[in-house]
Each structure stands twice: as C-alpha cells, then as structure tokens.
Computed example of a mutant assay.
Amino acid sequence: MATTKNVAGPKKSGFQGVRDAIWIIVICFAIAFCFYQFFLGNPDNFEGGDRAGHPANLMGTIYKGGIVVSIILTLLLTVIALGVERYLALRVAFGKMPLPKFTAEVKAAIKAGDFTKAQGLCDKMRGSVANVVSASLKAYKEMESAQGIKKSQKVAKIQQAHEEATQLEMPTLQMNLPIVATIVTLGTLTALFGTVLGMINSFQALAAGGGGDSLQLSAGISEALVNTASGILTSWFAVVIYNFFTNKIDKLTYALDEVGYTIAQTYEANHADEA
C-alpha cells in the first residue's frame, strides 16, 4: 500500500524571527538601565542639581519611581522590540501577495484543475502560506499516481499532508508571542511591586513624623504612582501587540484551512467514480 512521506514546504527564505529572544531582553535591560541612570537621573532634572532633591520636571518625577522603573522600562522595550520582530517575521510568512487575493486565485485554479497555475501562484507568493499549499499540491499529485488505496484514504492523506505542513509553519508564526503574553502579567505585577515599595516608604515617612520628612513622603508617593502608571502602560502595549499578531495568525490559519479543504474536496470530486 502506497504511503505519503511527511511533506514539508519549500525551503524557507527571508527573515524567520529571532529564536534567542533572551538577547533582546538583555539588550533592552541595558538600554533601560542607561536611560534610567543617565537620562532620567540627569541632575538637571532636579532642583539644585541634586538627585536627592525635588524633581524639576517630568523626567525627574519618573526617576523618583525607583529602580523598579528600569525593570518596567525593560519590559516595555522588550514588548516593542518583539512587536517589530513579529511584524517583520509575519510579513515574510504572509508572502508577497495579499492573502485574500492569493486564497481566491489558488482556489479558483484548483477547482479548474489547473495545478500548474496553482503551483505558480505558490512560487510567486512564497512564505508560510505558499509552503503549506505547495505541500498539499504535492500530496495531491502523489495520490493521483498512488495505487491500492481507497479514495477516502487518499483524501485523508492529502488532508494529513496539509496539517503536517501547517504544524511545521506554526512555530515560526507564533515564536516569541508567549513572551509578550507573559509580559502582560509581569507588567502589572511589577507595577504592583513598585507601588507597594513606594507606599512602604511613604508610611515610613509618616511614622517618623515631623515636617522634615515631607520630602521622603512625597518621594514615596511619586514612586508608587510612577510605577503604577508605567506598569499599566507596559501591560497595555503588551495586550495590544499580542492580540494584534494573534488575530493575524488566526486569519492566516483560516486561509490555510480553507485552501486545504478545497484541495481535498477537489480530489474527491475529480475521482467520484473511484471506490
């Protein structure tokens, strides 16, 4: 009984994404720490040119948020960097043609039995979508010449080849998105941690009593509020970026399923007289 081999798409080309995202995080931390120390902590941002004094502007106020600010900035920069990385990777994965146009044209070619045109569209399209469709077309051609297999089994093998090719592409599409999803929670938790630290400092100033601790009290309140605001901003960015790219991947997956179903149904229709 003839069998099909695990079908992979054509060799991938172009930007496939950053696999070692830890280096992105390390670089973002270095940038965030330098930004916190040398830009936000610039003496010109404080009255009297002393970091221990009252902030003279917004930059000084953010600096008063404490070292937790640099951690939150690291998370924010990481989200932005991974957002750019995912945009570039998915741009390659989606291919060179608009996805709706490619899906419509390749379905029309398959229904018309013009598999040469369908393969030509894949060669022109490239990317993950083209890889999966090419794998399905290859399985279709193999089943045309396969002997000793029932039609239902051939259709199942075409569908299996499509699913296997899709699974090979999914890791590339979803790469680093779990990190973004984690930062959604980490941003909020880190903000809460910084807020608690700020409130602790504020209560310590109140416990000390006297007007001389008013500076420490205001610094503690600034630390709490700055961390809360920056953490919420980071989580907001992470949620938007994660949902944006998840939605794009869902659209691509739906288009792949649609084309895969068309290929399998076309084979079944063209071989209606087989058992």
Rank of each mutant, 00 (worst) to 15 (best):
T262Q: 13
I25L: 14
T262F: 07
H271N: 15
I183S: 04
M1S: 10
A165V: 00
V79W: 02
P55G: 09
Y267T: 13
V184E: 12
V69I: 14
L88S: 04
M1Y: 08
H54W: 01
G127T: 03
V239E: 01
L88R: 11
V180F: 01
K101T: 15
G211K: 14
C122Q: 04
I80A: 13
V239R: 03
A104F: 12
T3K: 10
L76I: 06
K141I: 06
A264P: 09
N270L: 13
N270K: 15
T188Y: 06
E164N: 05
L177P: 01
G113K: 01
A156T: 11
G17W: 06
N57T: 00
D123S: 13
V69R: 05
R126K: 15
Y261C: 09
K11E: 15
P98G: 05
F245S: 03
V184K: 07
A21C: 01
E85K: 01
G194I: 13
V84F: 12
I24V: 15
A52T: 10
E258V: 01
F102D: 14
P178A: 07
N131Y: 04
Y63S: 02
G209Q: 15
A205V: 10
A255W: 11
E258F: 03
A264K: 12
N131W: 02
T182H: 10
Q37K: 15
V79F: 04
V180Y: 02
F38H: 10
N131A: 15
S235G: 08
G41L: 10
G48W: 02
G65L: 07
Q160Y: 01
T78P: 05
K251G: 12
I200Y: 09
D114A: 12
F244N: 09
A30G: 13
S230Y: 12
I149P: 00
F193M: 14
Q204A: 15
I31S: 04
A181F: 01
F203M: 15
Y242C: 00
K138H: 09
L121N: 09
G17K: 05
I200S: 14
K111P: 04
V180L: 00
P98C: 05
T195W: 03
A219T: 14
Q265M: 14
L233R: 03
G220N: 06
F35W: 09
Y140I: 06
M170I: 11
V259S: 03
G41E: 08
Q204R: 12
A30Q: 05
Y242W: 00
A52Q: 09
I71H: 03
Q153C: 01
Y254E: 14
L77D: 00
F33M: 08
